[in-house]
């Protein structure tokens, strides 16, 4: 087992088939400690399957993955203690309030964090007595990020953290992810929003039909494209429609 101190996550030649479909087809990459690593790709490209194999909740057909030198399959239980996971579809208990839900998950890891601190971090302190179903989409995502942080994880997995959110709620989640990154966590995230990857990720892997088709920093990927002589179909303005929308409706969250 090779434990390169610089690479906290190592993925080696991963494959997973569902029937005749190669959901993951020989994927290998490394994630450096402290970086935000993005996995981009269209729906059904194999992002979630890859992430779930690394998290240890799916078995690969071939290949192996390591987190902090631990084999995901052999040291499954140890791995689960050091990772934080936000699944693409989240569900929590109906009859507990937000505080109780976070506190419950915190107890499962032996109370490594204070529930109140987590609620403050994800700005849900005012909602602590609400039920999960009473939260807005952005609040639900922030709750599931808070729960992913209860064990102060070495590696945080975020699977499409902003899918379905409005621009304000999305910026709010982005700010939260940036803050977590500043505190030194390694983050592996999937998304199909390019501007999200550009905003947050140090490096991105672009995945299509189960294979990595490109892996580099967002800046390098754009430079390579331009080097190939790429001409945008329309001229890039200094602001996007997203910026117009946020300028008109405000950066701040409203009731979110």
């Amino acid at each position: 087992m090779k434990n390169n101190t610089n690479n906290i996550v190592e993925v080696k030649n991963l494959s997973k088939n569902y029937g005749k479909i190669n959901a993951v087809d020989g994927i290998s990459f490394e994630v450096k400690s402290g970086e935000v690593f993005g996995m981009l790709g269209p729906n059904g490209a194999g992002k979630t399957t890859t992430v779930e194999i690394i998290e240890g909740i799916r078995q690969p057909d071939k290949g192996e993955t390591f987190i902090n030198g631990l084999n995901t399959i052999i040291d499954n239980k140890q791995i689960k203690k050091i990772i934080g996971v936000q699944l693409q579809q989240n569900a929590f208990f109906d009859y507990l309030n937000i505080y109780e839900i976070i506190d419950f998950y915190s107890k499962l890891y032996g109370n490594k964090t204070k529930t109140i601190d987590l609620l403050k971090k994800v700005e849900l302190i005012e909602k602590k007595n609400s039920k999960y179903k009473e939260l807005s989409g952005g609040q639900k995502q922030r709750l599931s990020i808070a729960i992913a942080l209860v064990n102060d994880p070495l590696v945080l997995f975020l699977d499409e953290p902003t899918t379905g959110l409005d621009p304000q709620a999305r910026r709010h989640v982005w700010n939260l992810i940036k803050q977590i990154r500043l505190e030194g966590s390694t983050i592996i995230m999937t998304t199909h929003y390019m501007e999200e990857a550009e905003e947050l990720c140090d490096r991105v892997a672009i995945i299509d039909t189960g294979k990595i088709v490109a892996l580099d920093t967002p800046g390098n990927l754009i430079d390579k494209l331009i080097d190939k002589g790429f001409k945008p179909k329309r001229t890039i303005k200094k602001a996007s429609l997203d910026d117009v929308f946020l300028d008109l409706t405000g950066q701040n969250l409203r009731g979110d």
Partner: peptide, 17 residues
Amino acid sequence: IRFKVSGVLRRLNVTPI
């Protein structure tokens, strides 16, 4: 069944317990 269908059990599967 509610826990199973909604994904609560799946979420618990990524915790050590």
